[in-house]
Amino acid sequence: MYYEIHGLAAADAPVLVLSSGLGGSANFWQSQLPALTKKYCVLIYDHLGTGRSPAELAHDYSIASMASELIALLDELHIAKCHIIGHALGGLVALHIAASSPERVISMVLVNAWSSPNPHTTRCFNIRLAILDNCSHSVYLQTQALILYPPDWIVGNIQTLEKEEQHLLANFPDKTNLLARINALSQFNIDDKLASLTVNTLVIANKDDILVPWQRSQWLADSLPHATLVLFDYGGHACSVTTPTDFNNTLLKHLETF
């Protein structure tokens, strides 16, 4: 898998692994790097089958598969323990590792994530699948932006967003892989294990997230034994992009407790 290491050396500082959502791109975390690399070793990566990590994903691909891939990367880099910060699908990967290999996780941060399917998010992904099947890639990306960002943020950042969409259009993911990743996140359900996950957890959610109801984060915080919920009024699904200062400050406050 393609990866980048930023900041301090792993031998000198705690390691932060930043795991992206459905798009799987390491570039999603650009707004976090300046704040995190002063004190930490930061690992970002393109999920297998996305971006710069080309692969043909298996028909039975799952969140467990993604977790195994990340563990293999950590082993390759001789990283025994780390903090895992996961956005949406990346949060599901963190949850699976916390359940299957808790000794590898110092803490986890779950950003607009979930532990089981819900009717609203399922409908959103059904619509995205229909657009993927029946519309151009450009329309799919414009729909994606509507899901990720608040309306006023789109208006205020339209030139940057359109430039990013042109880049994404030129590197549009393999459809089969995209379908496999959507199927994997749609089937993920770890509700019956939450009470046994003892990893210290920060849950971040946004009330204006139109993809994942913030109550799913409340459920995570209530169900995990050692979890704290931070709930923002504004930021949308991709708050690490739209409100990076508030997001980064919240993340640093959590990390400074270790």
Rank of each mutant, 00 (worst) to 15 (best):
M66L: 06
L255E: 12
G51N: 03
V93F: 02
N112R: 02
T50C: 12
L185E: 08
Y2V: 01
Q142A: 07
P117V: 00
A238H: 02
L95E: 13
I190W: 03
S138A: 14
A98I: 03
F125W: 14
P34E: 10
H6S: 09
H83I: 07
F232R: 02
T242N: 06
A113G: 15
T143R: 11
I127V: 15
L92Y: 05
L194C: 11
E162D: 13
V111C: 11
L92T: 06
L178H: 08
T242Y: 04
F188D: 03
H237P: 09
L161A: 03
I131G: 05
D246V: 01
K38V: 03
L141E: 10
A64S: 15
N189W: 04
P34C: 10
P150N: 06
D246W: 00
L74M: 15
A26R: 03
D60A: 12
L95K: 06
G21S: 09
T50K: 11
L95S: 10
S138Q: 14
R123I: 03
T176Q: 11
I63W: 00
L251Y: 05
N249D: 14
K163P: 01
M1L: 05
V212P: 00
Y2E: 08
L220H: 12
A10T: 06
G235S: 09
E256L: 14
G90S: 10
D233G: 13
Q159R: 05
T122E: 14
W153C: 06
I147V: 13
L211M: 12
L36M: 11
A64C: 07
V109C: 11
L197R: 00
Y234H: 15
A55P: 06
L110E: 02
A58V: 02
H137G: 14
N177I: 02
